[in-house]
Amino acid sequence: MIRQLLSHDLPRNRLLTAVLLVILAGLAFAPFLFPGAKALNVAAKILIFIVLVASYDLLLGYTGIVSFAHTMFFGIGAYGIAIASTRMGPGWGSLLVGGLCAVALSLLLSLIIGLFSLRVRAIFYAMITLAVASAFQTLASQLSQFTGGEDGLNFKLPEMLSPAFQLAEEQVLGAWLDGKFITYYILFFTTVLLFLAMLRIVNSPFGRVLQAIRENDFRAEAIGYRIVVFRTLSNVLAAVFATLAGCMLAIWLRYNGPDTSLSFEIMVDILLIVVIGGMGTMYGAICGSAIFLLAQNYLQDLMRIASGTAQGLPLLPALLSPDRWLLWLGILFILSVYFFPTGIVGKLRTWRQ
């Protein structure tokens, strides 16, 4: 049963299996294990980034396409929910209409970009997507009547998803069963379904063709596959999943703005997570997202503790200052690339038992 759910793509390493189970258990029981607002917010972001990074891995890791427009589709999903909820009011219908319109727009844009740009060489395609993403971010900032401009849009969700909603008057196992609790588990089960869907895609005959194109596009075309069609379909699928991740982000935050979903920093984070987790593995999105977001949110706190412990020693307090957390995050990334050139998942899979 589990083998079928995972599309016969098992972790193939006991340590990797244990790591994935720990991450899954932590995310599944996060409201009970980590009841604080910050911890729950980090867990929700890990869920969102698993979908977002896995969708980008479908492009980069499995098809060999470098795109800088992925955050554009991410932002379309978030703006779809935000604009529909602002215009139509809080309701399930608003979420449905916003999500469907966002997916339809992403389908159209990704199809146009794919058909007109994927015929060129990889570097030129990357530059085209970068230009399109920059133009879309500028457009979102200037169309303040629809997008709220630089200030973004605050909106309300259905009553069941609002923090004021209570399923029970008392805590259950240390967690309040409120609207935030319900919203988190909607995100959790959505992430599981979307991840399993992407895992099925990459392990289908279609996914095998994508991998053949990644390895040698000339050979794939020589044996009869129209590589432009397959690359375009891969671009469309990745855009749809990124859009759904954007919808998840907007539902969780109840806000969206240009810096929240369209920032180029998010694109850099996606690239870092794909490299850390392992390109072309899917499971790398889970490991990479968990490690990166935990480091991003808690490394500064750990350095503050370490700096206080090292007081009185030469140089160490200054080196471990919380203000230098980005430096250490960069060092951790360099070390991970050096010791895990195929990513964490790739290294563990090739590690002899």
Rank of each mutant, 00 (worst) to 15 (best):
T138L: 13
V202M: 06
A245L: 06
F116R: 14
N235V: 09
Q145G: 12
V228C: 08
T129K: 02
G207L: 04
P205F: 08
N203R: 14
A239L: 05
F230P: 00
A164P: 06
V240F: 09
N216E: 09
A140N: 05
L244Q: 02
A220V: 01
Q166W: 06
S204V: 04
N216Q: 09
A131K: 07
A135T: 08
V202C: 08
R226H: 12
L167H: 11
T183N: 15
I182V: 13
F206P: 02
E150T: 10
F136N: 02
D217L: 04
V228K: 12
V209C: 05
F195Y: 14
S141K: 15
G114Q: 03
F155S: 00
V240Y: 01
F181P: 02
L139E: 06
A239H: 06
L193E: 10
L199N: 15
A140F: 11
L109Y: 05
A245Q: 03
L157C: 04
Q211W: 04
L193P: 09
A135V: 09
G246P: 04
L177D: 03
Y125G: 00
L139Y: 11
N154M: 12
A131C: 13
A222M: 09
S162V: 10
S162K: 11
L177R: 01
A126S: 13
F146G: 14
S162W: 07
F181D: 03
T191G: 06
G179Q: 02
R119M: 09
L157D: 01
L249G: 00
L107Q: 08
A212G: 12
S144N: 13
P205I: 09
F124V: 15
G114R: 00
A197C: 15
K180D: 15
E169T: 14
A164M: 08
N154S: 14
T232K: 02
S110E: 03
N203T: 09
I201H: 02
C247E: 07
L194M: 12
A131Q: 08
S144A: 14
G148C: 03
E159H: 15
N235Y: 14
R121D: 10
F188R: 03
T129H: 00
A242R: 02
I201Q: 05
L107E: 05
Q171M: 15
I186N: 07
A212L: 10
V228D: 10
I112P: 06
T138I: 09
A175S: 13
A220T: 03
A242V: 11
T232Q: 00
A122L: 09
I182K: 05
Q166P: 05
F155R: 02
S106R: 03
L177M: 11
L196W: 00
T147Q: 04
M127Y: 02
T191S: 12
F188A: 04
T191W: 03
K180F: 11
Q171G: 15
L196C: 06
I223T: 11
I128R: 01
L210H: 02
R119L: 08
F116I: 11
T232S: 05
R200A: 08
F195H: 00
R226K: 13
I182W: 10
L233D: 07
Y225H: 15
W176L: 08
M160Y: 08
L109H: 03
F189K: 11
T232W: 01
A245K: 03
L157Y: 01
R119C: 06
I186E: 08
F218I: 13
S162H: 11
L139D: 08
F195S: 07
L115T: 11
A245E: 00
Y125V: 00
